[in-house]
């Protein structure tokens, strides 16, 4: 029982980061029908900027907000130079474009910065734990869960209470009708990329804190977790994306602690296999959404 609760908290900590990433993927899928394989590159870019700033002597408290800003700018930039040019193209084209952007960004870091891993120091408190009864909880997990809750509440507030959020939800539900209502498609798509970038930035802070380094290929892992969590939840559903992220995090932690001996190393593989099974039997994901209108 204790172990289970322990796992659950660890899993939620991990899953929170995935949830933020997945939400960013879902927001973009909603307005553009684009499965964004380049989503993880926002973290790669932020990671390098963070590394540069650490070398300037900045502390985590200064770097953290900068990471969010960089992720938003990078997201908007990628939309401008690549995705805005393939709006409304076939799914095939959209997927391969994002796949190409993913590789292009990481290749540019290899070329201009170098293939070597750049390390920076993690914040001092990252390994601290506090004991609640028999359960040892990582402070980091608590911070992640707390910040994620706040971020999700803020996102919900933006989506529910602001006109931009309303426009975004309307566009995700029915793009053509949203345009008829006077919603500017450029603005709503750019807004979606900005929001998606902000979410990736917040997730990126914790991702980078935990990793303590960045490399050209750093984007693969967060991209996969975000995309898969969004898919598990049912693409286009924002609620599903959050649930998918949490489920993925908990599944990973539980499997890692429960799988016997040698197989524990295969956790990631088992998770992928489970996802494949999920899609074989429920191709639409956990929460199915009517296919969103395309731009």
């Amino acid at each position: 029982m204790t172990e289970l609760i322990q796992n659950l908290i660890d899993g939620l900590g991990r899953g929170s980061i995935y949830a933020l990433l997945a939400l960013g993927v879902a927001v973009i899928f909603g307005v553009m029908h684009l499965l964004n394989f380049a989503h993880g590159e926002l973290i790669t870019v932020s990671g390098y900027v963070a590394y540069a700033m650490f070398n300037q002597g900045w502390s985590w408290y200064l770097v953290a907000p900068l990471i969010v800003v960089v992720a938003i700018i990078a997201s908007l930039l990628i939309e401008r130079v690549a995705f805005s040019l393939v709006r409304g193209a076939s799914d095939f084209t959209l997927v391969l474009t994002s796949f190409g952007v993913h590789f292009l960004v990481s290749a540019m870091f290899v070329m201009f910065v170098g293939a070597r891993v750049k390390t920076f120091s993690e914040p001092g408190w990252i390994a601290d734990t506090i004991a609640i009864g028999p359960i040892n909880v990582e402070v980091f997990d608590l911070v992640v869960i707390g910040v994620t809750i706040v971020t999700l509440l803020l996102t919900v507030a933006i989506l529910q209470k602001t006109m931009f959020g309303l426009a975004l939800r309307a566009a995700a539900a029915d793009f053509d009708t949203a345009r008829l209502m006077g919603i500017d498609s450029n603005r709503v798509i750019r807004g979606a990329f900005a929001l998606s970038g902000a979410l990736a930035g917040i997730a990126g802070i914790f991702w980078l804190m935990r990793a303590g380094n960045t490399a050209p290929s750093s984007g693969i892992d967060p991209m996969l977790k975000g995309v898969l969590a969004a898919l598990i939840g049912g693409l286009g559903s924002m609620r599903g994306a959050v649930l998918g992220g949490l489920a993925l995090g908990v599944a990973e932690v539980v499997l890692r602690s429960q799988l016997p001996g040698e197989a524990a190393a295969l956790t990631e593989g088992v998770v992928f296999a489970l996802i494949a099974l999920l899609f074989i039997f429920r191709p639409q994901g956990i929460i199915s959404v009517a296919t969103a209108e395309r731009v």
Partner: peptide, 14 residues
């Protein structure tokens, strides 16, 4: 083509 996921007042606001 009303937005079925949005409330009535949200539809009007859009």
């Amino acid at each position: 083509r009303i937005f079925t996921d949005l409330t009535v007042v949200e539809n009007l606001k859009v």
